[in-house]
Structure formats: C-alpha cells, structure tokens
C-alpha cells in the first residue's frame, strides 16, 4: 500500500494550494464585505499568483544564493506539515508527533526570515527580526496549550499521548463539565489569536508592515519568488486552521450521518472545509477588519503576558473541573 501514500504525497499538496488560495479569496471578500466594500472576486488570489509568475524575478546584486532558495524551502516545509495533519477530514497520510509538527511550524517563517536577511536590504532585515520576535512570542501560548492537551491525554492513560492520531480522538471535550467547557472555550479563543499571530495578520503583522518598512521581509522579492511566498501564506492558513481543527474539532460528520464509502469521504471533506472556513473567518478576518497593528514592544508583552495568562487560566479552570468530576 506504500504506493498509495506516494500518490497521496503527490496529490495532496496541489489540492492544498487550490484550497488555500480559495480560502484567501473568501477571506478578502468577507473582509471587504465587512467594510461595506464590493471586494475582489473570489478567484483573485489565483489571478495574483498567475500574474506574479509572469512577471520578471529580480535578484539583487547584494543578495546571496540563499535569497533565491528560501521561498522553495518555505513552501516545501508547509507541504510536509500538510501530510502529517488530517487534511480534508481524512486520516493523516504520514503518522507524526505533535512536537514534530510544532517544530515544523517554525520552518516556513524561518525560511522566510533567512531569505529576508540574505536579501541585503535594511527593510528586509528589520522585517525579519520582527518576524523572529513574533515567532518567539506566539510559541509560548501555543506550546502551553498543546502540551497541556497531551498531558491530559497522558492522564487518561493513552499509550502515545503525543501522536496526532490520539489527538483526533476528541481529547479536548472528553469528560468536561460546564466549567470545563468554559475553560476549553477560553483555550479556543487564545488559539485563534495565536493563529492570527502566526499568520502575521493585522494585529500582529509587524513583519510585513507595508507602511513602516516598505514591504517588510519580502521587500526585495519579486515575480516568481513572491508568488511562492504568496502560496506559502495560503498554505500556512490551511495548515494552521487544520491544526485548530485537530485540537478542538476533530470529529467527522460521516459517522453522524451514517453514510459509508465514497459519500462519507465527500461529506467529511465538505464538513472539514466548512470548519476551516468558519475558523478562518473568526480567527483573522474579524481581527483584520477591526484591530490595528501592535508595536513591536507590545507584541511580546501581548503574547507572553495576556495571552499566556489567559491560556493558564483556561488550563486552571479545566483542571478544577477535572478534579471536581
């Protein structure tokens, strides 16, 4: 059966790109609608990517060879994460660890930063060190939530508490009283903010701040490299929303409707798409239209201060609930 995984390894990334660009289009459309604007057509990201691939790719003289290689690496690392997560509601193609996925989530933004640093432009250097500060920031709440959940799995006596498969058994809502539900919702709220931070969406988009540092990390990128970064951004949206789906809403719809075979597959993937869509809208489209940008110094305080305290509070509430029940 290993050749099926090979086919899946080849097919899934293409599906992920299409889905990601579609989601970005819907995101821009919903954001425009929220500002009572007509907003671009849903397929606008596809036109943007096509245009970027037609334009020339300028390589600055001062930049090193890494500048040209990093867009490739960031897209490849995102493809790999997709294989390890239950994409389209199906079971993950390759079986991996939660710690592995957490570390692999660093790779795309690290590749972007290395590319930005080696492009030689001061704008990109400022942008990339802000991106690293952002990365150092959002890891703390993210890691606390994920390790708490695997610890909860461990206390339930699951054999491999860190593997993704055991996460998809709906650990978050298992055995929770009303108090626990409140704690879990608090964790969901923190997770949505962390997702917005990881995608460097408006409240946290210090790294690609258009006005202050002309274009941030991608100041020197153009044409096909910029197209790859555009695709990487779309893929990251898919990956992160799937991560939240794995953590908080892993249950499929087909079992509920009781249909088997191919229909179950389609029903699951549609339900998955709806979940991802709703998560995206609530996590970053709402934020994009309502909140303005944080300063770099406020960034780390926001993550390590308020968001971390919120997640610890949520964990504490759930802990009390587990003790009571």
């Amino acid at each position: 059966m290993w050749w099926i995984t090979l086919i899946e390894i080849a097919v899934f990334p293409i599906v992920a790109i299409l889905l990601g660009l579609l989601l970005l289009g819907i995101d821009r459309k919903v954001a425009a609608r929220m500002q009572r604007r007509v907003g671009p057509p849903i397929l606008q990201p596809f036109y943007d990517v096509r245009k970027l691939f037609i334009k020339d790719t300028v390589i600055p003289k001062k930049s090193t060879w890494i500048f040209d290689f990093m867009p490739l690496l960031s897209v490849v690392s995102l493809f790999i994460i997709i294989l390890y997560l239950p994409f389209m509601g199906l079971s993950p193609v390759l079986h991996g660890d939660m710690v592995f996925i957490l570390y692999l989530l660093i790779l795309p933004s690290l590749a972007k930063v290395l590319g930005g640093i080696s492009s030689g432009s001061p704008y990109a250097a400022v942008g990339s060190q802000r991106e690293i500060t952002n990365m150092m920031g959002y890891e703390f709440p993210l890691v606390t939530i994920i390790f708490f959940m695997s610890w909860k799995l461990f206390s339930f006596g699951v054999a491999k508490p860190f593997s993704v498969a055991s996460f998809t058994s709906g650990v978050m809502w298992a055995g929770l009283g009303t108090l626990g539900i409140a704690g879990a919702l608090l964790l969901l709220f923190v997770m949505l903010l962390v997702i917005a931070g990881e995608l460097s969406r408006p409240p946290f988009d210090v790294s690609s701040a258009g006005e202050e540092i002309a274009g941030g990390i991608t100041a020197e990128y153009s044409g096909r490299n910029l197209g790859l970064f555009y695709i990487a951004d779309a893929l990251k949206l898919i990956v992160l929303t799937t991560l939240v789906v794995v953590l908080f809403f892993p249950f499929g719809i087909s079992g509920f409707l009781g249909i088997g075979g191919w229909f179950a597959l389609i029903a699951d993937s549609i339900f998955y798409f709806i979940k991802v869509l709703l998560l995206m809208i609530f996590s970053e489209t709402v934020l994009k239209t309502s909140v303005s940008r944080l300063k770099v110094t406020q960034l780390v305080n926001a993550y390590w201060g308020s968001l971390l305290m919120l997640s610890l509070l949520g964990i504490f509430i759930i802990f009390i609930d587990m003790v009571l029940s």
């Binding site: 020339d56 790719t57 003289k61 001062k62 490739l72 001061p122 044409g223 096909r224």
Partner: peptide, 23 residues
C-alpha cells in the same frame, strides 16, 4: 514538485540598476 512549480515562472531580468536594492 515545488521546484517544478517554481520553474513555471519567468526567470530573466535586466541587470544594472534593476539589481540595486530598493532604498
């Protein structure tokens, strides 16, 4: 696969002033 996607794009550019970084 990604290398294939990247090779779809256009590669050439004018040397000279176009290569200076944008300040």
């Amino acid at each position: 696969i990604t290398w294939l996607i990247k090779s779809l794009g256009d590669k050439k550019y004018k040397s000279g002033i176009q290569e200076d970084i944008f300040l």
